[in-house]
Design a protein around this nucleic acid. Structure first.
Length: 786
DNA sequence: AAGATCAAGCTTTTT
DNA sequence: GCTTGATCTT
């Protein structure tokens, strides 16, 4: 049902009955589950409220209970509550939890969702006010960049010096600040070789003709509509009587304006956030929004949730001590009544590989149960890195020792090439005027329609002022193209017509239709004929895609949702260690957390500091804070003296954040030998042994002096000797049929030998040609320290 | 038009 | 070092 119809029906009625109903004791039993601060946050229903919720303080619980309480007290009906989150996952979780508390699905909560999904809903309703039709398409970053590239070329700009990616960044930034092309301040005019504003305007124009929007537009258009049409805004202010916002510290200016506009009037707005966990400044998030809240909403109640239910006192102490170095915080003191627990462990390693090896062993030790701790399932352990390229060292190592892991936040399902291609076909079937989709698939699979043919179609279409499909149709009917290309193009045009026809008539089951589109077009065959090792996986993904269609009534509905729901949560029950970035870890918790790579330049990231100075450093520090506070039971921070970056060996100092950790909460495992006499950690293979070797490094010669000494110490070269030995052995000793082991590809059989190269058929990874020194005989796999 | 070779890059990424 | 895109080659 349309939410607006519900509104209309509701407005015709009256508000009385619910609010008049007395609340029995049984109905508010949920309030007894809350601590005093949570309870205050739940019961302060009217007027502006800022809920400062530290890590692990039961924020979601307070938020969902508040929604239930709004309903129970009769303040609002499900449809009158606007609850905004940043991610679909958070929205889903909120919906589930509210539903669970109510004892039935949270029906009618039509305004619970992400900023973007709610904006889509608003924008479809009022598209014409933004110069769009309500069936506009939503472009993702990839489409956006391709479009910008065209405009850059059309503007006679050297795309190499001025890449589309950079322009996309500038435009995104402006949109995040709610600047339309005319509102970009003069001070920004020099951006992109003085051409950015002009290109931005051209881009917006192009989007309008394509009847398309990008992610930034979703918010921007809604803000612009609200500003230009007070009557429309007023409607929503009346309808949406209570507003809740999750992760408020991550809102950007456009989102802030969006909220302000809707909230002004009743001012029933409850923002939940934690200024110490603001880690998306680089994407336009304004910590200022949360710091300014009390000024923006006079009379706001500020409620602090400070009782932590997640971590031990040592972990909290370390995190609090670290974040205390940041200026301009709203300030919170997290506390817990949990038993003291383990200190945060700190360990230095010779290089990144050793760090990965040590962590691998430590994971296994924790899994068995060590240090007097209960055994911890790998499911409840995570390795949190600053940058995704750090993940590889762990993947390599874990593959070697056969430790199951999962990487969170890799390329997402709907961003994969084959999925995007398939989607382009579906888009064309639904809306044959979708030029971007047409461009994408016209020569995929190969139809002999290369650059020249495509330019011809473009030209014909542009001259006639028609979509590309129509242009193609004319090219065919007028025979402007030769031989193979012509026949293929004719076939494609006919096929698109047929698909569109079927979509329109809606007679055919949309799942069958989708399968047929992929088969008819030759796209399935394209991957079946592809001999690369990725091909089977891609076909698998296509099957997944078709399966995902089952949840929707038709192709249109599917496309609508997919544009916004880009997450890729595959349930997998096997017990695995998680590897992810610190950013991806926000909101999650693990019993054991490893924080590798705490080296100056890597973390805090040099680039962050160069580009954003002190505020960049503070954001990095918040990232560190987020990392530590993910840990429930045990947290291990590590750094490596040497690390290979972009193929070059580099030595680095331990992160300055390490100095900022309060010593009382830290246990230093690093043996003194590490800094004194070169590689000294050879015997230190597990945490238990390391602990025996742990000296009072913090106090003894002075931790800082140690660092200084490390700085002046000559750069040590990585050990090579053992690898060289293996190399010589390996190169000469293999024969056809030998079983070998490779650290990334696993076990395999030698199929051929050419000089120093082996042709190996791996059990899991398929056939690879590689240099002999990268593999060892299978029976030696366990002894070799890679 | 399609494969092959080479240079230039290179944080984080909810939607 | 390794991937990605642009140019070169057939």
């Amino acid at each position: 049902m349309n939410d607006f119809d519900e509104f209309d029906a509701f407005e015709a009625g009256a508000h009385q009955s619910l609010s008049a109903r007395a609340l029995g004791a049984r109905q508010v039993a949920y309030l007894d589950d809350l601590n005093p601060a949570q309870r205050a946050a739940v019961e302060a229903l009217d007027g502006p409220v800022l809920m400062l919720a530290g890590a692990g303080t039961g924020k979601t619980k307070a938020l969902t209970t508040r929604i239930v309480h709004l309903l129970n007290t009769g303040r609002a009906r499900p449809n009158e509550i606007l609850a905004v989150t940043f991610t679909n996952k958070a929205a889903r979780e909120m919906k589930d939890r509210v539903g669970r508390m109510l004892g039935h699905a949270a029906e009618g909560m039509g305004w619970m969702g992400t900023f973007h999904s709610i904006s889509v809903k608003l924008l479809r309703r009022h598209a014409e006010l933004a110069g769009l039709r309500s069936n506009f398409t939503i472009l993702d970053t990839d489409d956006q960049i391709r479009l910008l590239k065209q405009l850059i070329l059309a503007g006679n700009i050297d795309e190499k010096r001025w890449p589309a990616r950079q322009l996309a960044g500038i435009i995104d930034n402006w949109k995040n600040r709610a600047w339309t092309p005319t509102r970009v301040p003069a001070s920004e005019a020099s951006a992109f070789n003085n051409r950015a504003v002009e290109l931005y305007a051209a881009y917006q124009e192009r989007l309008r003709t394509l009847n398309a929007v990008d992610f930034g537009d979703l918010l921007l258009h809604v803000v612009t509509i609200f500003q230009a049409h007070p009557d429309v805004l007023e409607q929503y202010q009346r309808w949406l009587r209570y507003i809740l916002v999750d992760e408020y510290q991550d809102t950007n200016v456009a989102q802030y304006m969006w909220l302000r506009l809707l909230a002004q009037g009743h001012c029933n707005i409850c923002c939940v956030g934690d200024d110490d966990q603001s880690i998306y400044g680089w994407r336009g998030a304004e910590v200022g929004n949360i710091l300014r809240f009390e000024k923006d909403f006079p009379g706001a109640q500020v409620i602090r949730l400070e009782q932590n239910y997640r971590s031990t006192p040592h972990i909290l102490g370390a995190a609090s001590g670290l974040i205390a170095s940041n200026k301009g915080r709203l300030g919170k003191t997290l506390w817990t009544d949990a038993p003291e627990g383990e200190r945060v462990r700190l360990i230095g390693h010779w290089d990144g590989e050793e760090e990965a090896r040590w962590i691998g062993e430590e994971v296994e030790a924790l899994q068995r149960g060590t240090r007097g701790l209960d055994p911890i399932s790998p499911d409840h352990m995570a390795i949190l890195v600053r940058a995704s390229h750090q993940m590889r060292a762990f993947e390599d190592r874990f593959l070697t020792i056969g430790l199951p892991y999962r990487v969170i936040g890799g390329p997402r399902f709907y961003e994969r090439l084959e999925i995007r291609d398939a989607m382009a076909y579906f888009r064309l079937a639904v809306g044959p005027t979708d030029d971007l989709a047409f461009e994408r698939i016209v020569n995929t699979p190969k139809r002999g329609l290369g650059d020249k043919a495509q330019q011809l179609i473009q030209r014909v279409a542009r001259e006639a002022g028609v979509p590309l499909l129509e242009g193609a149709r004319r090219v065919v009917s007028e025979g402007l193209l030769g031989g193979k290309g012509l026949a293929e193009l004719r076939r494609l045009v006919t096929q698109i017509d047929q698909w569109h026809d079927r979509v329109r008539r809606g007679e055919q089951n949309h799942i069958e239709l989708a399968e047929q589109i992929l088969d008819d077009s030759g796209y399935t065959a394209h991957w079946q004929n592809d001999k690369t090792p990725e091909a089977p996986g891609r076909l698998e993904n296509l099957k997944e895609l078709v399966k995902a269609l089952e949840q929707f009534e038709n192709l249109q509905g599917f496309l609508e949702h997919v544009a916004l729901i880009m997450d890729n949560e595959t349930e997998d029950t096997a017990e695995k260690v998680s590897i992810m970035t610190l950013h991806a870890a926000k909101g999650l918790e693990f019993q054991a957390v490893f924080l590798p790579g705490w080296e100056d330049g890597l973390f805090p990231s040099q680039r962050s500091m160069d580009e954003s100075g002190l505020s960049g450093l503070e954001e990095e520090r918040r990232l560190a804070y987020v990392g530590i506070t993910r840990a429930e039971v045990i947290c291990t921070i590590s750094f490596a003296s040497n690390r290979r970056v972009y193929g070059q060996w580099q030595s680095a100092l331990p992160s300055r954040f390490i100095d900022e950790l309060p010593e009382d909460h830290v246990e230093v495992l690093t043996p003194p030998g590490l800094y004194g006499g070169g590689y000294g950690a050879a015997g230190m293979t597990s945490g238990v042994e390391a602990r025996a070797a742990s000296a009072n490094v913090y106090n003894s010669p002075g931790w800082k002096r140690l660092q200084e000494r490390a700085a002046t110490r000559p750069v040590a070269q990585p050990r090579e000797s053992r690898n060289v030995v293996i190399d010589l052995e390996a190169a000469s000793s293999f024969t056809l049929g030998d079983r070998v082991f490779h650290q990334k590809f696993g076990y395999g059989t030698v199929q051929g030998i050419e000089g120093d190269k082996l042709d190996v058929s791996f059990d899991k990874a398929g056939s690879k040609k590689l240099v002999a020194r990268f593999v060892v005989a299978a029976d030696q796999a366990d002894d070799v320290p890679f």
